[in-house]
Write a protein that binds this DNA or RNA. Structure first.
Lengths: 210, 210
DNA sequence: TACTTTTACGAACGTTCGTACTATTCTTCG
DNA sequence: CGAAGAATAGTACGAACGTTCGTAAAAGTA
């Protein structure tokens, strides 16, 4: 519906393709020349959409984060708060990084590793995104505590830490080692983590339904 | 003691420097020119030690794996088999990836992410090393089961998976986000994982010592 | 339709990439 | 010491890198 100027829609098309490349080769492996060839544009024509290569890389990162928000975050927010939402968040996140349709995993995880010792704007952006992602997870955990699904002394930071670990291990086992059990292993680990912090079964007042 | 020919010792010196660079910039970020400058050699003189850039990258990877073996694996093998050894293995592994002395984490973890969607000899080598590492962990778990420290139905593969996740999360939190709690979080997660699979206290025959 | 802005192109810049050759210097050992 | 071989430097290459510039085509607006 909303009017999309020509430049904006080519820019989006470029970013789609750039994201595909960056997922496989990393943001540093993304070059203007190869991207121009992949999109069928000239180097200079493509370049004009971004003032510099670094700006292109930043735009790609943001483009990936946006997709992540649409595919992982938003669907989870439609699930009942508390444990169900936390689980949905985790499963969507997991499937997002394990998706085999498009090669290469989550661009944010890629960037995190690629720039963990390479200071600069891209690293800063990656850190900021990671922080936001962790914040989302922690908030979901806190809600689960408030809903009485998790014990009150549960540390949201610790849960977020361990969930990230499970996702990273899945990515490693699934994408690198080709382990078909990666997803199952992740779900097993998730269940165990939750069981460890689950609130004791609370006595229902009146007759419990079912 | 053992006679080291001149070429061999420069080669080692080159690999030391190359490893330092590759840890920060990745194996793909390692270039002949920058490495030559860092070592004070000419491009061609350095190049002669390795037939190609790819061979250099493979050599760097092996160099890193060798260091890993010396720093992580061997010390752990001197600890009592079973749970103590498994813990030592984990802690050394953790500290190895979190070491702040040299920038950049474990080169094998780096390579794993860098090449997870980039087929070729380097990827193959990285996969092989990961497999070996996981094998070592699984073996340590199996010994812990045999020693009666862990429950008999413990799945070594699952433990190795989750331990990898904890290390990866530590790397992420510690190196990227600068979270000083990363190591503590990792140890907490380790203890919880072990507690989950710990064999029930076995009744000691006769009087238990102490 | 005419005018202005946006969008894309082609050519060229200087630099760096990996690699190939040839020449020179240094080790090693009889 | 002096010859043989290993180790390093020098030079050059074609290709690809990111970027700049002037210009042509397309799109949007009046």
């Amino acid at each position: 519906m909303e009017k999309l100027t020509k430049g904006e829609q080519t820019r989006t098309a470029i970013l789609d393709e750039a994201l595909r490349i960056a997922r496989q080769l990393g943001l540093e492996g993304l070059t203007i020349g190869s991207l121009a060839e992949a999109t069928g544009m000239s180097k200079s024509g493509l370049f004009a959409h971004f003032g510099s290569r670094e700006d292109l890389q930043l735009a790609v990162l943001e483009h990936g984060a946006k997709q992540y928000g649409e595919v992982v975050l938003m669907p989870a927010l439609r699930i009942d708060r508390g444990l169900p939402r936390l689980r949905a968040l985790f499963v969507h996140w997991l499937d997002w990084t394990l998706q085999t349709k498009l090669p290469g995993g989550c661009i944010m995880i890629s960037a995190a590793h690629e720039y963990d010792d390479r200071p600069g704007p891209i690293r800063d952006a990656a850190v900021e995104m990671q922080r936001r992602g962790i914040g989302v997870t922690e908030r979901a955990v806190r809600l689960a505590i408030e809903e009485g699904h998790l014990k009150k002394d549960t540390d949201p930071g610790q849960i977020a830490f361990e969930l990230l670990g499970i996702v990273l291990a899945s990515h490693n086992h699934g994408k690198l080692l080709g382990d078909k059990e990666a997803r199952n292993r992740a779900l097993t680990a998730f269940d165990a983590l939750i069981a460890r912090h689950a609130a004791p079964a609370q006595p229902r007042l009146r007759a419990a339904s079912r």
